[in-house]
């Protein structure tokens, strides 16, 4: 039994972590909210010291009304959706393959997981230059070898190229989690189904997939939260050109490149709301698991 003494000691021990996270969350959030209702252009002489002009919801209206807003939402959805589809489909197949008995399983696992540890700037630059470059990239050689014309990947097919790069980074994550889930599947159930003569596809559809549904949901939610805010990959490949300007990148440009803090902050509030919608679902699943 916890005594009164240990309970107050416990609260005391939690205090630093709770306090720091509270400050980390509240202070910047309040500032973003504050700026979002102000006209704040530091390069044109606006400063906190001189007082900022209150503009109501003008920044919110302008952010949504700008011609880059809807394309940025579209680019965000295409990238997030594309990466999710690629990583989940390939991840399920790969996890099922890795679950089979084979020689050198440990080494294959290591090979498959490796991209997850490559820092985003490295993977983006390596793909951009050494694979997708239309003159010297490896894919260009491959295309030429088969008599095709090399594709200018990052300008002609910028979004699919980005999806490809980001999927390469996240496939290991999806595979690893799905593999962990598959390994917890009761193999007797599968054997029984096999003996009853259920074909492979039916076994997959009625036994494996339902068993994986929870893991798939978790992969979708966690990846979505990270993918909504991918930055470095766009920063070093296209710099937001060729239709790859996501919501995150648009806000980054408004705030740091054109130094329109009010407008960028309004965008930031939209991004926070968007992320929170996804987060709510994730928290519910994680929360349920805590009770178990």
């Amino acid at each position: 039994m916890a005594t009164q003494h240990s309970r107050s000691a416990a609260r005391f021990m939690m205090a630093p972590a709770v306090f720091l996270l509270l400050v980390w969350m509240l202070v910047p959030l309040t500032m973003t909210l504050f700026f979002s209702f102000k006209k704040y252009l530091p390069l044109r002489g606006d400063s906190m010291a001189n007082g900022l002009e209150w503009v109501g919801f003008a920044n919110y209206v302008r952010f949504v009304g700008s011609s880059s807003f809807w394309p940025s939402i579209q680019a965000t959805l295409v990238i997030v959706g594309g990466v999710l589809v690629v990583t989940i489909v390939l991840g399920v197949l790969l996890a099922m393959l890795l679950d089979q008995p084979m020689w050198g399983q440990g080494i294959v696992r290591i090979l498959v997981i490796a991209p997850f540890f490559v820092m985003p700037t490295v993977s983006a630059l390596v793909w951009k230059n050494m694979f997708m470059d239309p003159n010297n990239g490896l894919l260009a050689y491959l295309w030429k070898a088969f008599g095709g014309t090399p594709v200018e990947w990052l300008s002609q097919a910028a979004l699919p190229s980005l999806i490809m790069i980001v999927s390469w980074q996240w496939l290991p994550f999806a595979t690893l989690i799905l593999l962990t889930a598959i390994q917890s599947l009761d193999s007797e159930q599968l054997e029984a189904a096999e003996m009853d003569g259920a074909p492979v596809l039916k076994r997959f559809w009625f036994i494996i997939l339902p068993h994986l549904s929870r893991a798939i949901t978790i992969v979708i939610l966690i990846q979505t939260i990270f993918l909504l805010s991918i930055f470095a990959e766009i920063f070093v490949t296209t710099g937001g050109a060729f239709g790859t300007k996501t919501l995150t990148y648009l806000i980054f440009q408004r705030v740091l490149e054109s130094q329109n803090v009010g407008l960028g902050s309004a965008g930031g509030v939209y991004a926070i709301i968007l992320a929170n919608i996804v987060a709510l679902f994730l928290m519910r699943i994680v929360g349920k698991n805590l009770d178990a």
């Binding site: 969350m25 959030l29 805010s229 740091l256």
Partner: peptide, 9 residues
């Protein structure tokens, strides 16, 4: 889950 870009400035 707070998007970093939302609190960048």
């Amino acid at each position: 889950m707070l998007p970093a870009v939302g609190v960048l400035y």
